[in-house]
């Protein structure tokens, strides 16, 4: 038998794998760059054009600000409605997708695939879909963000739920509790801080997304941004971008401080 104090020799590195991986990534990048016509020289040649745009956009047209208030507020309202409704609907979606809590394989399977479909389709797709269904405007935006919120929270939270200690849920069952009571008193309290944290995260994403959604006519500041851009009012565009930046930063700070207090 081997002496336990013998130091084993350091295993050799797998050079073939390392070189192979580096080569593969390099080739793939080169091939992709060529495919989309990306070239550093062309980029350098076009820089003056880009800088002209920047010069034209500066300074921001601050006098335009009062007319931004209503659409900014609408953007926030779209984000709030989408986060709250999506956050509520995400609860059953997440619970049914958690292997340790789901009542049966079939429910789990259907719900998992439902979740994957929601997540695979981008928020812009949902915005266009709802804009076509209920007309251009904030309702379409709120509906798109509802779906987006369900996708974000349910995926993350179902993983938190799968990681809980199943001892307490079993104790609730042992007291004669039903499946719902097992969830309410045994499972969900353990994962509640995660839920709040993910809901705040979804809200941050939604404020950001509600700007983009406006581009396809789903209400809010994005719709103003799109009209100003298409009429070449670049100083106004700058002001809009600055406003959104400030709002997103504030929301991030606030939700980060709430989150730190939670966990």
């Amino acid at each position: 038998m081997n002496d336990v104090f013998t130091r084993p020799p350091r295993p050799a590195r797998n050079w073939a794998l390392i070189i192979g991986a580096v080569t593969a990534v390099t080739l793939m990048t080169w091939w992709s760059g060529r495919g989309i016509g990306f070239s550093l020289t062309e980029l350098a040649c076009n820089l003056p054009g880009g800088s002209r745009l920047l010069v034209e956009s500066w300074p921001p047209e601050f006098s335009y600000f009062p007319r931004l208030l209503a659409p900014l507020l609408e953007t926030l309202q779209i984000a709030v409605v989408g986060t709250v409704i999506g956050g509520i609907l995400a609860v059953p979606v997440a619970v049914l997708a958690a292997r340790n809590l789901t009542p049966g394989f079939l429910v789990w399977f259907v719900d998992r695939n439902f979740m994957n479909i929601l997540r695979t389709l981008p928020d812009l797709f949902w915005a266009m879909l709802f804009a076509a269904a209920v007309g251009f405007g904030p309702i379409a935006g709120a509906l798109a963000l509802t779906v987006f919120t369900i996708a974000v929270i349910s995926k993350l939270w179902s993983e938190s739920l799968e990681a809980i200690n199943m001892g307490v849920p079993e104790a609730v069952r042992a007291s004669g509790g039903s499946w719902l009571q097992m969830l309410q008193f045994g499972a969900i309290p353990q994962a509640l801080p995660h839920y709040v944290s993910y809901a705040l995260y979804a809200f941050e994403l939604n404020v950001r997304a509600s700007m983009i959604l406006g581009l396809v006519g789903a209400g809010g500041i994005g719709m103003v941004l799109e009209t100003q851009r298409s009429t070449f009012e670049y100083p106004r565009v700058t002001l809009i971008v600055l406003c959104v930046l400030v709002i997103v930063l504030i929301i991030e700070q606030v939700s980060e401080s709430i989150r730190r207090r939670l966990i």
Partner: peptide, 26 residues
């Protein structure tokens, strides 16, 4: 097997889940 973040009272009331109407516990 008690829920650490809930109060003692809530944990003890779990013993009553089978005795009260579901909506009340909910």
């Amino acid at each position: 097997r008690i829920t650490r973040r809930l109060t003692v009272m809530t944990n003890v009331l779990v013993g009553r889940v089978a005795h009260v109407p579901g909506w009340r516990a909910m």
